[in-house]
Design a binder for these strands. Structure first.
Lengths: 240, 240
DNA sequence: TCGAAAAACTGATAAATATCAACTTCCCTG
DNA sequence: CAGGGAAGTTGATATTTATCAGTTTTTCGA
């Protein structure tokens, strides 16, 4: 079932896929010139917060989490990126260190484009520049949206939102498989709650008939109800 | 006293002042061509979430909050912008509606630059483009930083951070006056906590000798201790 | 400058969420 | 395919934070 009309999913996706897809072939070729393709196993770190960036990453296949780790080890997931998305460009563009870490949630194939190539193409390609501007300004909307959810919504609502967002990610990965496959820790770190509470809320959702779970695999069986639980259904928004 | 070495203030500021300051005079002139200057009283709304943007705003004087309002009226402040900062460009660049609202925390003088002029200069000025890219990628770091604070830090730590950030804002406004002058509601909406709890935490800080307050005016008397309370002092970070 | 109205403050209580300690299940590897 | 460690689950409890119901103080316009 589609989310159209029941959940504003655009407010949750960075949509960086469109950057690579929509730039001229010539620019793409130049970006790919010195690109290297790397395999990452589940759990592998792609880059670490605080490290000096040396290029950008282009996810060919798989799902990646972007997160920050607290001084006492707690992790907060900022974003989950899937196939076709770019990561690591913020640090290059801001000329700072990586603001967050990235690691593979499942086995991934990820291309690396050296900083020099990226910057060179950027400086000569108005379209790439334009796409990045559009993309990052949209990210602002996504991130502020996230902030308001983290500070104003209940744990239950946040879990509902997390599940809806992840379902889309996994659906995009493999169009005939919309099962979420992620650890309970990652889920709780995405929703910003304790793992134990996440488990309890999942159980409640299961009892409500919203989802079906077996081991770590979660299948949403009633996306509409989940959207209602999230209190984020488009209808609710319009009424306010 | 300076924050150097005790608090990473850069991780809290968008620094959009540098955009207007560092572009060629010619570009500035073109941006200013149809600019109109407007006065706003304390509390006046500059733009509203969901509205179609028609231009960008350049704060000449005063302090502005950017915030989102929840469906039941609760407000979360995303950012506080001061003199020299630009606001409202995200919506223009993303070709979406305003993702958040903006209103004056104190009396302001704000210039309005029509969308057409901004886009025209943008398309012909590589430097403006570059500055915006750098700025927005830095914003990513600021916003993800915020997210981790909202989900992982205690109310007390968040209030400490809020006060440190605001002190800088007010200091920039008027270099010989570093007194924070903002309502308790705004303070609590910035820290993401209930107003009553904010008041209690302020009282505690007052008793600790961290600050002095009279009416709504707050003066930080021990910024070092405040940085320690925030658990964000650079030292602490390095040790981890 | 007086007198509402709004904002600030306080204490008591409720609600939400985290933590802790144990147990169970899953899954990977030798 | 057995054993062990990691991940998941559960119930009890602690902690944090919000809410409620007032009182006090400040602010601002008539």
């Amino acid at each position: 079932m589609s989310l159209a009309g029941i959940f504003p999913i655009d407010q949750w996706n960075f949509k960086s896929q469109s950057i690579m897809k929509s730039i001229p072939e010539e620019d793409q070729d130049r970006l790919y010139a010195n690109m290297t393709i790397e395999s990452y196993n589940k759990g592998d770190v792609i880059f670490k917060e605080g490290a000096v960036p040396s290029g950008i990453f282009f996810i060919q296949k798989g799902i990646v989490k972007k997160y920050k780790v607290d001084r006492d080890g707690r992790e907060q997931i900022m974003y989950v990126a899937g196939t076709g998305e770019l990561i690591g460009y913020h640090a290059i563009l801001s000329e700072e260190r990586y603001p967050d870490s990235a690691s593979a949630i499942e086995d991934c194939i990820i291309a690396f484009i050296p900083k020099e190539d990226f910057l060179e193409v950027l400086h000569s390609s108005p379209i790439l520049t334009q796409r990045l501007l559009k993309n990052m300004s949209h990210e602002y909307a996504v991130l502020t949206n996230n902030i308001s959810v983290f500070t104003q919504r209940t744990a239950r609502e946040r879990v509902a939102i997390t599940l809806i967002v992840l379902r889309e990610k996994y659906k995009n990965e493999d169009s005939n498989e919309e099962t979420i496959n992620i650890s309970r820790s990652d889920l709780s770190n995405m929703a910003g709650i304790a793992k134990e509470n996440l488990v309890r809320i999942l159980k409640e959702f299961k009892n409500l008939g919203v989802l079906f779970s077996e081991g770590r695999k979660i299948t949403i069986t009633n996306i509409k109800m989940l959207a209602e639980i999230s209190s984020y259904s488009t209808k609710t928004l319009k009424i306010r």
